[in-house]
């Protein structure tokens, strides 16, 4: 197998397995247990764990330190990095810092706008955008060079990924935009939460027509509803989210004490259906503040146990 990095996630893809990732959001405080406890809940059911980077623009324990905590548990972290808060010096520096702890996965994002968070009066940086961060990380790894052109001693060896939202507008460039990310060097893609399965399957169809599913590993994003209220909130309030009315109704029609189970059931059904979608190479399960349910979802969806030795 021709691997470019020591990443376990890359190994799982290369061995032809359906990969599974999930994520842990760091706390708004300095207690490392807030991360390590979540990681403990999901560690036997996933191949790698995303650590979000000041998600929703709320100031939190940093992604890099959190990644180090779970790396020290013997787990496989995915360092999320947004371009909102750091310039090119800081981002390259943090990539070296992560590499010094043998963190082998990176996910490049632009990040939620700071107006949604606790520092709405702050500056945003966006010295690079997410595609340029992908290019930067690939250049650092593949050419062993900084953006400025100098050689890097012991370059980072990171498997480089990006996010994609098949549901954002304008639709006509959703696939060209993925093509751009692939051209920039994205080796895997984690999608936005998928609720509108037909629309996602249409997107995948268009992705396959361009052969992009052969050039990058697409992981379908899955989020279980915790309640009918959450479904309604996400449908109405979260930008770039596509939740069919029928799904909101299904949650609303379920008695309150059974809504959690129904939410899990919907997630499992989605995974089972999308496993059949050609070009889907894995699942990224975003159970926000509900990490304890990840094992149940993975087991019921037939994605457990994880390959012990992917290579």
């Amino acid at each position: 197998m021709n691997l470019k990095t020591p990443s376990k996630l890359e190994q799982v893809f290369a061995a032809g397995h359906i990969a599974v990732t999930s994520e842990c959001g760091p706390p708004r405080g300095s207690d490392p247990e807030a991360v390590t406890k979540k990681a403990e809940m999901i560690k036997d059911h996933v191949d790698a764990i995303n650590i979000t980077d000041n998600q929703t623009a709320m100031t939190r324990l940093c992604s890099l330190a959190s990644c180090i905590h779970i790396k020290q548990m013997g787990l496989e972290p995915i360092l999320q990095m947004v371009t909102r808060d750091r310039n090119r010096i800081a981002m390259q520096s943090d990539l070296l810092g992560a590499a010094s702890f043998d963190i082998h996965n990176l996910l490049c994002l632009s990040g939620d706008h700071q107006s949604f968070g606790d520092c709405a009066q702050g500056q945003n940086v966006h010295d690079l955008d997410s595609m340029q961060l992908i290019q930067t990380a690939r250049q650092m790894r593949d050419e062993g060079k900084f953006l400025g052109g100098d050689d890097i001693k012991r370059p980072p060896r990171m498997f480089v990924g990006a996010a994609a939202n098949p549901f954002a507008d304008p639709y006509e460039i959703r696939v060209p935009r993925l093509a751009k990310k692939v051209a920039a060097g994205a080796e895997y893609i984690q999608t936005q939460c998928i609720f509108n399965l037909e629309k996602f399957e249409q997107w995948m169809h268009d992705v396959r027509e361009r052969g992009l599913h052969e050039k990058t590993c697409i992981m379908a994003g899955i989020t279980p509803f915790k309640s009918a209220g959450m479904a309604k909130f996400m449908a109405k309030r979260v930008p770039g989210m596509d939740i069919p009315d029928a799904l909101v109704k299904r949650m609303s029609d379920t008695p309150k004490d059974k809504q959690q189970a129904e939410g899990i059931k919907i997630a499992i059904e989605s995974i089972q259906r999308l496993k059949e979608c050609q070009g889907v190479k894995g699942f990224h399960i975003m159970a926000i503040e509900w990490e304890e349910k990840v094992p149940e979802i993975c087991e019921a969806a037939g994605m457990h146990p994880r390959p012990e030795n992917a290579g």
């Binding site: 371009t83 632009s110 997410s130 340029q132 996010a163 954002a168 920039a184 770039g240």
Partner: peptide, 10 residues
């Protein structure tokens, strides 16, 4: 951003 739009375009 130089290569947009981001996921927040609706």
């Amino acid at each position: 951003i130089m290569n947009g739009p981001c996921g927040g375009s609706s």
